[in-house]
Design a protein around this nucleic acid. Structure first.
Lengths: 186, 186
DNA sequence: CCTGATTGTGCAACTAGTTGCATAACCCGT
DNA sequence: ACGGGTTATGCAACTAGTTGCACAATCAGG
């Protein structure tokens, strides 16, 4: 149950509206957590009801009106509690690894195009993270906060680097095995 | 929707019962997909109803009876179709990255113990994968099937390697930023 | 033999995340 | 002042995964 905490972090870093949060989850926050706007609105409602956040006064909080939230002390306390609590790592699931393993039994036919597409997506993501790094973490800024945030961004960068390398290797393996033993061969 | 396909792969590699599958998902299959026994039994039921797999005859398929399944042609075809189909990568979510980012705002108090615990878990996982590599992929075996399976295992090994390095770095950052102190126990 | 642990299968309820759609205001060009 | 795009908020239904429990068969030890 981490989405509410991701939202608390984002709001502590900068109070925002639902859509503002959605945009930030699509961009920089995306390298450690992702969420759709529906999840975010639902969670904002819950967090407000629980007294962990509150809407900043602006005008009527009617529909179609921008409504910004800030974190209350209770929310900060809950976040600190959660951060320090022991948690088991969630099991990983990766469909691309699964598909490669499937290709070992049913053949690699049709796989190459999507491998290339994923490689491209990961390269773009990597480029974007490196852009963020250049912009937000220039050498010399060594405040404790910045170092921790940079560490998290580095994880994103290194994971994307891994995937681009791995997908490149996978593509190199493909042509060698280009057969499709689709049916039970005698 | 990948669990049924993970099961098809596992059954193609070796027909098994529900519990057998559960064990394999906990072990070697775990580096690309994980599932609980309840998920597996539910999915086996569905796959059988759809005619993608069938129970091997053994005795009465009553409760408490071991019941093994094998993949039917329809199942193999569906797996080949799924493998070749274009799929978007799922967004990643990692609670530990989230907690580090939280620590940048609410302090790192209480985090160290769990970082160490995770580091230990990833080291063990890495050792286990390297054991599998030594056992199942000795140098020289260069069949197409083996190369693809090895590639997938390498992904697991390299990801675990990344995490052990990253967590080590994270631990190195901690003492420097020990703010929000309550009762530090050195 | 009976008993209690282990193996093996399974249901039901819950939690988290996704998809599809609805609605309202506001902004801009004609 | 009107029609169409964009911004912003939100509900409802669905899918996937998790948790907690139930229950039958089998097997080992007293």
């Amino acid at each position: 149950m981490s989405l509410p905490h991701a939202i608390l972090i984002a709001l502590l870093e900068k109070p925002s509206s639902g859509l503002g949060l959605t945009r930030r989850f699509d961009r920089s926050i995306g390298y450690f957590w992702s969420a759709t706007h529906q999840q975010i609105y639902r969670e904002l409602g819950k967090l407000e009801a629980e007294g962990q956040i509150r809407a900043l006064p602006a005008a009527q909080p009617t529909r179609g009106q921008k409504k910004s939230y800030e974190v209350l002390p209770a929310g900060r306390a809950e976040l600190a509690r959660w951060t320090a609590a022991s948690q088991d790592p969630k099991p990983h699931r990766d469909a691309m690894l699964l598909r490669l393993r499937a290709a070992a039994v049913v053949g690699t036919a049709g796989l190459e195009a999507d491998l290339r597409r994923h490689l491209d997506l990961h390269r773009r993501q990597l480029a974007e993270y490196e852009e963020i790094e250049k912009r937000d973490f220039p050498p010399g800024n060594d405040s404790a906060q910045a170092r921790l945030q940079h560490l998290v961004l580095r994880a994103g960068i290194e994971l994307e680097t891994f995937w681009t390398q791995w997908l490149t290797e996978a593509l190199a393996e493909l042509p060698v095995v280009e057969d499709a033993p689709a049916d039970p061969a005698p």
